[in-house]
């Protein structure tokens, strides 16, 4: 079943400026329960696409459906937003309250959940992201990775079926990045929440079920990471790079060695090297 579907989605920020379309006739379906990574460099339209997934932006042409609901239907706005939650880049700018648990409660409070149930949801959400011990802390005293996990908990507490994360790791250090990605993968695996991860880090896409590459407002590649990354020339033509493992295999192939291009993880790559040279 599809949780998100776009039909010939066109979007431009300002029709009179003549800067042209940010998204061009985009057709996309996202399967419920899957982990989808959307890769693209700055200006590829990936963040703009993300903002269409919970009706923050509305299409200038075409349609977007969230579990069958048209996002331009204002009557169902709240229902759409509680179905698809959104986590943004800067954790500081999405935390509303002075205390961690109050912030996580913000979403459920907005949709009118009874007090006793908010309590259970908040506790559940904080446990799911491993921040339960910090429930009474002030958010500004937490690390970047912890803040981002609190932001994720704030979304989970609304019990969405899908989470869209718009470059959630861009402002974090490597350990914070790891924390956030592990959390997101676990939520996908254990709670069955659909995850759409927008990123420009190749490495974050390797474990995804599906990888979509965007450039200039259009999808240029779509498939499993093993299908997409071997298209080294296509990716490099649009100014993107490939994971270091694929890059290495590519160079070796050019030098005449029979390296597989779909050995994405460091372990797989090492094994392939061992087979080729050993």
């Amino acid at each position: 079943m599809n949780i998100i579907r776009t039909e010939k989605l066109d979007f431009e920020y300002d029709a009179e400026s003549g800067r042209g379309l940010v998204l061009k006739e985009l057709d996309l379906e996202i399967e419920e329960g899957s982990f989808v990574a959307i890769l693209g460099h700055n200006g590829s339209g990936k963040s703009t696409l993300a903002k269409h997934m919970n009706a923050i932006l509305l299409p200038t042409g075409g349609k977007v459906f969230v579990s069958g609901m048209d996002t331009s239907d204002e009557e169902r706005l709240l229902e759409i937003r509680r179905t698809v939650g959104m986590v943004f880049q800067n954790p500081d700018n999405q935390i509303v309250a002075n205390v961690v648990e109050d912030d996580v409660a913000f979403g459920p409070e907005n949709i009118g959940i009874p007090t006793a149930e908010i309590r259970t949801r908040v506790d559940e959400a904080l446990k799911a992201v491993g921040m339960y011990e910090y429930r009474n802390h002030a958010p500004h005293l937490l690390s970047g990775g912890q803040k981002q996990r609190v932001a994720i908990a704030g979304i989970i507490a609304m019990r969405p079926r899908c989470i869209v994360l718009d470059e959630p790791t861009a402002m974090l250090d490597p350990s914070g990045r790891r924390e956030v990605l592990d959390t997101v993968h676990r939520l996908n695996r254990e709670n069955g929440i659909t995850v759409v991860l927008i990123t420009h880090h190749m490495d974050e896409c390797i474990d995804a079920d599906r990888l979509i590459v965007m450039a200039d407002g259009a999808i240029i590649a779509d498939g499993s990471p093993r299908e997409v990354f071997p298209q080294v020339e296509l990716l490099r033509d649009t100014g993107m790079d490939v994971p270091a493992t694929v890059g290495l295999a590519w160079e070796l192939r050019k030098a005449g060695y029979d390296m597989p291009l779909d050995a994405l993880s460091a372990e797989e790559c090492a094994e392939a090297l061992y087979r080729v040279f050993g």
């Binding site: 509680r82 800067n90 500081d92 509303v96 913000f106 907005n110 009118g112 009874p114 007090t115 908010i118």
Partner: peptide, 26 residues
Amino acid sequence: RRADELATAMESRCYHGGEGRTKLKV
């Protein structure tokens, strides 16, 4: 810039004013 981003984040967490709002701590 922060205010702008915060407003977007609040909206996507279903904030729509005080109407029909419940509270964690009553």
